[in-house]
Write a protein that binds this DNA or RNA. Structure first.
Length: 290
DNA sequence: CGAGGTACCTGACAGC
DNA sequence: TGCTGTCAGGTACCTC
């Protein structure tokens, strides 16, 4: 899935394109993607006529604040991405009619919101892991998932002291801790690898064993790299696209993620890949010693 | 509580 | 050409 920078890119572009629009209709060929309400007809009825008043990001979640006190939540998981344009269906596939520039045919559109002017917002999702939920805004705030979400790493209020405090008691490996949405919201596999390479810390190092200097370096690199990735409109290593179907440029500057067997740009050693908690960590065995 | 496995899906790619 | 196994930006849910 898109991580924080990719979701932020999407949200910024959506604000420009569809803020203030009314949802006129909903189409889906994979209704299981809508987790709440379970019944698609109910989902369709509740959305009909709602106006998109605000679009926000919280961690990796996209929140559409709608009229009538409702919030539409979309989590894109691994391969979901939102596209804005106008499509027509031809031989079972959605073809771009207007709006999107580079994505001419998309076989993975499973949910479409008709927004008026013939404009549409589509959720394309190869692996169908994305989740879509419609909430009463107040109820959503009370959910465990939301209350448990950690601070926004780019928030001014999120201080180094806070970060140090949250790592102090963690026995887990730092890579896993960085990806734990309860510790910090929005970091996933790409950016955790890139952050740790930047500060020469092993992904296997226990969070509680980090020195003050290391923690500070991670904190700073986290903010720097995420901001840089947002400026570059995210990473399109797999199939993330922005809402016009265009690729992000972070993958051009990444140093280790999915670069197993290549040379470390800093010391020339061969980049290794090793599992950490079920995910692949990519790192330089020389720069990032345990 | 934490750690680890599995489930949810589809597709690309390597090796036989 | 197929078949098999592995891997893929995430997270929920289960068991121990």
């Amino acid at each position: 899935m898109p991580e924080l920078p990719e979701v932020e890119t999407t949200v910024k572009q959506l604000r420009r394109e569809i803020l203030g629009r009314k949802i006129e209709g909903v189409w889906s060929d994979f209704k299981k993607i809508i987790k709440k309400p379970k019944d698609f007809e109910e989902f369709r009825k509740e959305l009909a006529g709602k106006k998109i008043k605000k679009i926000e990001r919280r961690g990796k979640n996209i929140l559409f604040r709608l009229s009538g006190g409702r919030t539409l939540l979309i989590h894109q998981k691994l391969t979901g991405h939102l596209l804005v344009g106008k499509w027509v269906k031809e031989r079972g596939k959605w073809r771009v009619f207007s709006g999107a520039l580079s994505e001419k045919i998309n076989s993975y559109i499973h949910l479409l919101f008709v927004l008026g002017n013939g404009q549409m917002m589509a959720l394309s999702d190869l692996r169908k892991f994305a989740k879509v939920e419609l909430w009463e805004t107040e109820r959503l705030r009370e959910t465990k998932e939301f209350k448990d979400l950690g601070p926004e790493p780019l928030d001014k209020e999120f201080t180094l002291e806070q970060f140090q405090e949250s790592l102090k008691a963690k026995k887990g490996k730092i890579k896993q801790i960085l990806m734990d949405q309860k510790v910090v919201a929005g970091i996933g596999n790409i950016y955790s690898d890139e952050i740790l390479w930047a500060v020469k810390v092993s992904p296997f190092k226990r969070a509680c064993k980090l020195s003050k200097n290391e923690t500070q370096a991670i904190y700073r690199a986290m903010r720097r790299i995420l901001s840089q990735a947002i400026r570059l409109k995210g990473a399109s290593i797999s199939d993330f696209r922005d809402i016009r179907g265009e690729r992000g440029r972070f993958d051009r500057v990444r140093k280790v993620y999915q670069k197993e067997g290549e040379r470390c740009p800093r010391c020339g050693s061969v980049i290794k890949r090793q599992k950490v908690g079920g995910r692949s960590a990519h790192y330089c065995p020389r720069c990032q010693k345990l």
